[in-house]
Computed example of a mutant assay.
Amino acid sequence: MGGIGPLGIDEACRGHRYGISIVQAAIHFLTARGVRRIVIDTTPYVDFYGKLGYEVWKTYAKYDKMLDEV
């Protein structure tokens, strides 16, 4: 199993396919090394990765608790 991410492209540079190109290159190198399962962990950009055929596999619940000061 291989992993991609996190990936960030400055907002001023978005829309030029830099992000998609980087991810496609990562997929190419991982598959060339024999990786057959790729995970992109903890990202809010589901639509972006969906363009490459990725789907949500797992979600996480967030919990927090205020602790009393000692």
Rank of each mutant, 00 (worst) to 15 (best):
G19P: 00
G19W: 01
I20K: 06
I20M: 05
I20W: 02
I20D: 01
I20F: 03
I20T: 04
S21N: 03
S21Y: 00
I22N: 01
I22T: 04
V23K: 01
V23N: 02
V23I: 11
V23P: 01
V23W: 00
V23S: 06
V23T: 02
Q24H: 04
Q24A: 12
A25Y: 03
A25T: 07
A25G: 03
A26Q: 04
A26T: 01
A26Y: 03
A26I: 03
A26W: 00
A26C: 08
I27A: 11
I27W: 00
I27E: 03
I27P: 00
I27Q: 00
H28V: 03
H28M: 07
H28C: 08
H28P: 01
H28R: 13
F29K: 09
F29R: 05
F29N: 07
F29I: 08
F29H: 09
L30I: 01
L30T: 02
L30Y: 00
L30R: 01
T31A: 11
T31D: 09
T31G: 02
T31W: 05
A32L: 08
A32E: 10
A32N: 13
A32R: 14
A32D: 07
A32T: 10
R33V: 05
R33W: 04
R33M: 12
R33G: 14
R33E: 11
G34P: 02
G34A: 05
G34N: 07
G34R: 10
G34E: 10
G34V: 08
V35R: 12
V35C: 13
V35M: 11
V35S: 08
V35W: 05
R36K: 13
R36P: 00
R36I: 08
R37I: 15
R37H: 14
R37W: 12
R37L: 12
R37Y: 12
R37D: 09
I38L: 04
I38T: 02
I38G: 07
V39L: 08
V39N: 14
V39D: 08
V39A: 14
V39F: 08
I40T: 09
I40C: 05
I40Q: 11
D41W: 06
D41F: 02
D41T: 11
D41L: 08
D41H: 12
D41V: 06
D41G: 15
T42C: 09
T42K: 14
T42V: 11
T43D: 12
T43H: 11
T43E: 10
T43F: 01
T43M: 15
T43I: 11
T43G: 05
P44A: 09
P44F: 11
P44M: 12
Y45S: 15
Y45T: 14
V46I: 10
V46S: 11
V46M: 09
V46E: 12
V46Q: 10
D47A: 13
D47V: 14
D47F: 13
D47M: 13
D47E: 14
F48A: 12
F48I: 07
F48S: 15
Y49K: 15
Y49R: 08
Y49F: 15
Y49S: 07
Y49A: 08
Y49M: 07
K51A: 11
K51Y: 05
L52I: 03
L52T: 07
L52W: 06
L52R: 09
G53A: 07
G53T: 00
Y54I: 06
Y54H: 06
Y54L: 13
Y54E: 04
Y54G: 14
Y54P: 02
E55S: 15
E55P: 10
E55Q: 15
E55V: 15
V56Q: 08
V56E: 09
W57P: 05
W57D: 12
W57G: 14
W57Y: 15
